[in-house]
């Protein structure tokens, strides 16, 4: 049911143009489902800066499913080959179309070196599709141990696709069954009278 306010929307005005919004940097988000689990590529989001990116990631990817840790970085750093000497988190996509998963940490001179070291230390002879690396100093890391991400105070099942779809399917089935009966009765009455 639409609220009355929504049927009378004002036109947006102001400095921010649609072009500017479209040009927001893209941020790549990794989530960890529970402590000790592997960080998996969750998706991306558009945000004007790192602060907004982490704020949005907490609500978007952090509330999709139980989440104990979020890593967020500008999209381009993951594929970059340049960079400086530091610690890199490295991620492997084992098959095309698969999700990148975190495999470990390497000390490297730049992105290319991090990827080479990733092969040496974590992949070996195994087959893989692509590698991403991210300098630790650029990644934003949020840990639920110190900073709550997934909210479990109240029943969160409505946020989960599986809980939602089951309940909604049951309700629709009931409504459709009711509608079918109504339609049948209507036609039945028409035939009779």
């Amino acid at each position: 049911m639409l609220s009355k306010a929504r049927s009378n929307l004002p036109n947006a005005t102001g400095d921010l143009s649609t072009d500017e919004v479209a040009a927001f940097p893209n941020w790549t988000v990794f989530t960890q489902k529970k402590e000790g689990a592997i960080h998996l590529h969750a998706g991306s989001l558009g945000a004007p800066n790192a602060d907004f990116a982490q704020m949005f990631a907490r609500e978007h990817y952090g509330q999709d499913q139980p989440c104990s840790s979020l890593w967020i970085g500008p999209r381009e750093i993951f594929t970059a080959n340049d960079g400086v000497q530091e610690t890199y988190e490295v991620f492997v996509q084992w098959v095309a179309g698969g999700r990148h998963e975190h495999v470990g940490v390497v000390e490297a001179e730049n992105g290319a070196d991090a990827k080479t070291k990733c092969v040496g230390q974590f992949i070996g002879d195994k087959e893989y599709h692509t590698i991403w690396s991210a300098p630790n100093s650029i990644l934003t890391k949020i840990e639920s141990a110190t900073n709550m991400i997934w909210r479990k105070t109240t029943d969160q099942n409505y946020r989960l696709a599986k809980g939602y779809s089951r309940v909604v399917r049951q309700k629709w089935d009931a409504i459709r069954a009711g509608a079918a009966v109504d339609k049948y009765q209507e036609e039945d009455l028409k035939d009779t009278f």
């Binding site: 306010a5 927001f24 989001l45 558009g46 704020m55 949005f56 609500e59 978007h60």
Partner: peptide, 29 residues
């Protein structure tokens, strides 16, 4: 929750909707 679908940017929309859901869940508790 009136802002769902209407917030100025997509992620702000998702976030604000998520926070509204929280508030309603808190009310229910």
């Amino acid at each position: 929750s009136d802002w769902t679908g209407l917030a100025p940017i997509l992620e702000a929309d998702i976030a604000f909707s998520s926070l509204s859901q929280d508030d309603i869940a808190h009310a229910s508790a």
